[in-house]
């Protein structure tokens, strides 16, 4: 337990019911979420306020090292924040909010495991398929792990997903026997098979050629209807299409002896893709940009 007084304050706050303003459709609520990293000048990520709603498509953009992965990991319930004003999650169709920050402080990792099993779907950069299971077994795994998930629904979703993703002919193959793009499509099916509340994709197109990457994004957007989707990417052009709500992580030096300060805020200016710097921009350059 962290003895800092701030924690006590948070403790008092989290005990109260969530903000009544929060719509029924909100599934994740973050307020004053802080994560710091030591080393070098240090780094501090701050999410002042962020909500994710049911069926919402959210893209996190930012330069390499800006903290997209850090934020995504926190949302994915695998990284403990340093402090949080509010950090709570409510699965679709549930009335009960899970106070994630409280669960972290209590160390009740079993609850995270249960939530990850039932309510989250993951798409990794390289698919993250298990090499020893064939495609079909990989895809159905989360449905088998989700307690009480109906067999019929699993079959139905499996059929629909594999058909839509065009991977019906790959089901018996091992991941090593199919192409990177095919693996990524299988990963999408795996992330969605168990109808999770929230799908997280970490640089899902980084290892794909551009046409395939476009197709993967399209499929993701088409398939995530009920599930909320959070994609982290450095390929800003692909998400500035109007179909994503884009949040940007901006880093700025924190002044003498202070850590780099990274803030997450919605991108107000929906400028056309061409206006943005293409491809990777070094952290130094983006830092200097954001200072001016």
């Amino acid at each position: 337990m962290d003895p800092s007084p701030q924690k006590t304050k948070n403790g008092a706050k989290e005990a109260s019911p969530p903000d009544p303003d929060v719509s029924d459709d909100v599934i994740l609520n973050c307020a004053d979420l802080v994560k710091t990293r030591k080393g070098g000048v240090g780094y501090r990520l701050l999410v002042e306020s962020m909500t994710i709603g049911r069926g919402e498509h959210l893209a996190l953009i930012g330069d390499s090292g800006s903290g997209k992965s850090t934020l995504l990991d926190m949302i994915a319930m695998v990284l403990k924040p340093d402090s949080a004003g509010d950090f709570s999650f409510r699965p679709i169709g549930h009335a009960k909010w899970h106070d994630l920050w409280k669960i972290w402080r209590k160390g009740a990792y079993g609850i995270f495991e249960a939530l990850r099993r039932s309510e989250l779907g993951y798409i990794m950069q390289t698919g993250g398929l298990l090499p020893f299971l064939n495609v079909a077994d990989n895809i159905t795994l989360p449905a088998d792990l989700k307690p009480g998930f109906p067999k019929a629904e699993k079959r139905e979703r499996f059929k629909a997903l594999t058909a839509t993703l065009g991977i019906s002919h790959l089901l018996g193959k091992l991941p090593s026997a199919i192409s990177v793009g095919e693996r990524q499509r299988c990963a999408i099916a795996r992330a969605l098979i168990h109808a999770p509340s929230l799908v997280l994709a970490d640089e899902p197109t980084a290892s794909l050629d551009p046409p395939t990457a476009d197709r993967v994004f399209e499929l993701l957007l088409d398939l995530c209807r009920d599930s909320a989707l959070v994609v982290s990417t450095h390929e800003q052009n692909r998400v500035l299409t109007g179909r994503f709500k884009v949040w940007r992580i901006d880093c700025r030096p924190g002044g003498e002896g202070q850590p780099i300060e990274a803030r997450v805020a919605p991108l107000k200016d929906r400028a056309p893709a061409a206006a943005l710097p293409a491809g990777r921009v070094s952290l130094a350059k983006s830092l200097s940009d954001s200072v001016h």
């Binding site: 079993g110 099993r117 298990l130």
Partner: peptide, 13 residues
């Protein structure tokens, strides 16, 4: 390790 980490991520204790 990678596979086990994926399994852990998928919520296996």
């Amino acid at each position: 390790r990678r596979s086990l980490a994926v399994l852990a991520l998928l919520g296996i204790s």
